[in-house]
Amino acid sequence: MTFSLLARCPDTGAFGYAAATSNIGVGARICALAPGVGGVLTQHRTDPRLAPRGIGLLRSGCDATHTVAALVASTPDHAWRQLGVIDATGATAHFHGARVKPAHNAAHGPGVVALGNILANDQVPAAMVAAFSAATGVFADRLLAGLAAGQAAGGEHGPVLSAALRIVTDQEFPYADLRVDKADDPIATLASLWAEYAPWADEFVLRALNANAARGG
């Protein structure tokens, strides 16, 4: 009951993800990102421990494929897990456990992987990758376009309640980390939040790195 995408920006090297689900607070538990390293998605009977574990594997030199394999080997409950990984080069890999409920699927494109479970149909991830790859604008706009396309392609079986967007660039803190923990239309609400946040995103980074040059409070 989650659909998500994980990507690397070819222009900046940033990593980001966008996700939506019919449970509350999806942004609290399904993804870890690290600047210059990559990202890991964990969903379907989610084990939040797997995402930071995967980041550790990527830091150690594992590529996306080996990271997925090691994560699967590390958990006795892998039959319930769905995983997606992107590494520093933009290579991607995924895993569907044998007990992941249908419809489920994954799709890959250059520097992007999308996956979902308990979907309305198995073409949702492909629609997300196609929309992300075709979208223009900044990285966050492309991630949100992919998420919206997943919903337009059918989304999941139940009504979506929460959505999240996170991006890391070259700093220890996120460039953007926006969550809609519960709403009637969380994907549209998330896009509206990004539209408000976007004009300030670079300013918030500047406040951390060079406070004397920043504006505002």
Rank of each mutant, 00 (worst) to 15 (best):
A7P: 11
A7C: 12
R8W: 08
P10W: 05
D11S: 13
D11C: 04
A20Y: 06
G25V: 08
G36M: 08
G39W: 02
L41I: 00
D47S: 09
D47M: 04
P48V: 04
R49E: 10
A51V: 02
A51Y: 06
I55G: 05
G56W: 06
G56A: 13
L58K: 11
L58W: 07
R59M: 09
R59N: 10
G61W: 07
T67H: 07
V68K: 04
A69F: 03
L71C: 06
T75Y: 13
H78D: 14
R81G: 02
L83M: 04
G84C: 12
G84Y: 05
V85H: 09
A88W: 13
A98Q: 13
R99S: 09
A106H: 14
G109Q: 12
V113T: 09
A114H: 06
I118P: 00
L119P: 00
A120K: 00
N121Q: 00
V124G: 00
A127W: 03
M128V: 01
M128Y: 02
V129C: 05
A130Y: 05
S133R: 03
T136I: 01
A140D: 15
L143G: 09
E156Y: 01
E156Q: 08
P159W: 10
L161A: 05
A163R: 07
A163I: 02
I167H: 11
Q171H: 12
E172Q: 08
F173N: 02
R179N: 12
R179Y: 09
D181F: 04
D181N: 15
D184M: 03
D185K: 10
I187C: 01
L190I: 05
S192Q: 15
A195F: 13
A195E: 15
E196H: 15
E196D: 15
E196N: 15
A198N: 14
A201F: 05
D202T: 05
E203M: 02
L206A: 05
N210H: 15
A211E: 15
A211F: 14
R215H: 08
